[in-house]
Design a protein around this nucleic acid. Structure first.
Length: 323
DNA sequence: GTGATTTGACCAAT
DNA sequence: ATTGGTCAAATCAC
């Protein structure tokens, strides 16, 4: 989370955001402590109070981040706009034109599935259409497009490249948003996802995911303020598993790595693990800490969430996710 | 037979 | 000229 602000520490808002979020973390801890403890009426009152504080603190943090972007000569702001932009107006073209910009770009690092040669399933079906040796990289880059490209005109593509420093890790760059309707994965994300649809110009899959998230997440912000910068410009990132079949080896984040966790610096903190078959009906949807990289600009969950859902970040009230 | 993968070629951006 | 992204024919797997 701290990475959303200047790494050089010069940003006036950066430290404050960290402080605010640390405060939120403490409040959430208190909230957890009151859950299930004490008399019900008393606990309810305390929880309500804490939730209110969390809500206002998150809004303040968002304000700080927003003002930070405004101050930054519009660079990150424009990148954010790019992230929010509609990708449907940039469909795959019939030419072999190289596409470099103006596309939703979501960069994550994933571990190989069960230690194998391929990245863990991300819940979508992909078809490989190319492979290329990349200058300066040990391993070739593979190019995938959505299987439903022709049947449904889905323009989503992804690039997978084995990390130089750790062959068991893959850098995956998702380009474009899925416009296809996948049976299974997203559909299983919850009935709520179908109840309220966002306008088609925004990513419906992401919205489904986020709705699931909002109903299933547990808030923990362990070690938030002390989170050091990640190596090589990567913030520990993991794909969000949309798979409805947990046994298929989808990434499952430990509880302490909820979406609101601080980015961890080691990939060992997340990865492939069998989903437990407990009573948690949301177990199939796991959202480890993730960060979106748009161009060379990084975004954290608030902005990412607003971007994915399609709500302008100025209007986005992240406190709703705590409700 | 059908669909996925491989791989060399093509083309645009830099 | 170099590099990266895509195409499409050939090949493979089921």
């Amino acid at each position: 989370m701290a990475s959303v602000v200047d790494g050089n520490g010069g940003g006036g808002g950066g430290g404050r955001v960290v402080m605010e979020l640390s405060h939120i973390k403490d409040l959430v801890r208190q909230l957890e402590g009151h859950l299930g403890g004490g008399s019900q009426l008393q606990a309810q009152e305390v929880c309500r109070s804490l939730a209110s504080q969390i809500s206002s603190l998150t809004e303040r943090s968002i304000t700080l981040i927003t003002s930070y972007y405004c101050l930054d000569a519009g660079r990150k702001r424009s990148a954010a706009a790019s992230l929010l932009s509609d990708v449907s107006d940039a469909p795959f073209k019939t030419t072999k034109k190289r596409k470099t910009t103006e596309k939703v770009k979501n960069q994550v690092r994933v571990s190989s599935a069960a230690g194998g040669d391929i990245p863990a399933d991300d819940g979508h079906s992909w078809r490989k259409y190319g492979q290329k040796e990349i200058l300066g990289a040990k391993y070739p880059r593979s190019y995938y497009r959505c299987t439903h490209r022709h049947s449904q005109g889905c323009a989503a593509t992804k690039q997978v490249q084995r990390a130089d420093e750790d062959p068991t890790l893959f850098d995956v760059i998702y380009l474009g948003a899925h416009t296809c309707v996948q049976s299974g994965a997203v559909a299983a994300a919850g009935e709520a996802a179908t109840a309220t649809q966002q306008p088609p110009e925004h990513n419906p899959n992401a919205h489904s995911l986020l709705q699931s998230l909002s109903s299933s997440l547990t808030v923990k912000t362990e070690g938030l303020a002390a989170a050091p910068e990640p190596p090589q410009g990567w913030v520990a990132t993991t794909p969000f598993c949309l798979s409805s079949t947990p046994a298929s080896g989808c990434l499952q984040a430990p509880a302490e790595l909820s979406p609101f966790s601080a980015p961890s610096t080691t990939s060992e903190n997340w990865g492939v693990s069998p989903a437990t078959s407990d009573s948690n009906q949301h177990a199939a949807v796991s959202l480890p800490p993730f960060e979106v990289v748009a161009g060379d600009v990084e975004f954290e969950f608030g902005e990412v969430v607003s971007a994915l859902v399609g709500i302008p970040d100025d209007d986005f009230d992240i406190s709703s996710f705590f409700a």
